[in-house]
């Protein structure tokens, strides 16, 4: 119990530092890919600190409550993940977090945040099946939905679930809001949606959402790292490689539409998972 609390505390403190740093690195590397110098690595921290000092504007309490819900629930899923919890529950808690974010966008009668929320819902529709199938794959491979049981595996998950990993990369693109799927919040400016869900958040409330994105980034990279648990260093490298791939994808793609996203994930992503799971299932049935 005490150990679990320590882990949670560590997660709450360390994850945003890590996430912010990764975001900073992302911004620098992206700038370099575009032939620019880019901001200081610590830029995301400056941004959030500045936002904390700005005037608070909001439409109503609901809007703030849901943003807070987004933060807290993402932290909860990350904590569950670090405690080695049930993958399905982690995915469902993440869904609640995303739902909370969506409701925050809906809480204001603003067209841009409203449409952002609708788009975020479509994004959820796109990635949710892949994440649950990922959990199912883990179950088929290890006989357990628990993250901690992965550490008893001798063989890395990547060896048996390479296609699922690719599908996870698609999810990652959606979740960390990179082109071609930067649809709901306009991580990069200059979009038809202004800033999507975050349009009506400002000052400290926006900072809250930024920090949540950091937690989320760490969690998602954790999911990628899960594919290589022994040694964990390899998993971390794998996650960083995945992150780098995302940056490259971001820089070589135009933003696409939600119709395309749904079509792509529901055919491409899900079929990748299905083939992979099918192979595992057949092998297991054959082996037994």
């Amino acid at each position: 119990m005490v150990k679990a609390l320590m882990v949670v505390l560590l997660v709450v403190i360390m994850a945003p530092l890590l996430g912010g740093l990764l975001t900073g690195i992302d911004r620098v590397l992206t700038a370099r890919m575009q032939g620019r110098v880019g901001p200081p690595v610590l830029q995301p921290f400056y941004d959030v600190l500045k936002l904390l000092g700005k005037e608070a504007l909001a439409a109503n309490r609901r809007q703030v409550a849901w943003a807070l819900g987004y933060l807290v629930l993402i932290i909860a899923s990350l904590a569950l993940f670090c405690l080695g919890g049930d993958l399905l529950i982690i995915v469902f808690t993440m869904a609640f977090a995303a739902g909370s974010f969506v409701l925050g966008g809906f809480s204001v009668r603003s067209p841009y945040s409203h449409i952002g929320s609708q788009r975020e819902l479509l994004q959820m529709l796109a990635y949710e099946p892949v994440l649950i199938l990922l959990a199912l794959g883990v179950y088929l491979q290890t006989g357990s939905f628990m993250v901690k049981d992965l550490f008893h595996q001798s063989q890395p998950l990547l060896a048996s679930m390479p296609l699922v990993f690719i599908a996870l990369l698609i999810v990652l693109t959606i979740k960390i809001r990179k082109s071609p799927f930067d649809l709901a919040t306009s991580h990069h400016g200059h979009q038809e949606l202004v800033k999507g869900i975050t349009t009506e958040y400002s000052g400290p409330y926006l900072a809250l959402i930024e920090v949540t994105h950091w937690y989320e980034l760490v969690l998602l990279l954790g999911l990628a790292a899960m594919f290589w648990t022994h040694p964990l260093g390899a998993g971390i490298l794998l996650a960083l490689a995945a992150f780098f791939i995302e940056m490259v994808i971001d820089n070589i793609c135009a933003r696409l539409t939600w119709n395309w996203m749904i079509k792509f994930t529901w055919t491409g992503g899900i079929i990748l998972c299905l083939i992979n799971l099918g192979v595992i299932w057949v092998l297991r049935a054959g082996g037994v």
Binding site: G38, K195, T199, S202, L206
Partner: peptide, 18 residues
């Protein structure tokens, strides 16, 4: 790229609330 104001942390947000 030539002027790259992001060096100073400047972002063009396009949204007055930010």
């Amino acid at each position: 790229p030539i002027y790259d104001v992001e060096r100073f942390g400047i972002i063009n947000t396009g949204n007055p609330k930010h």
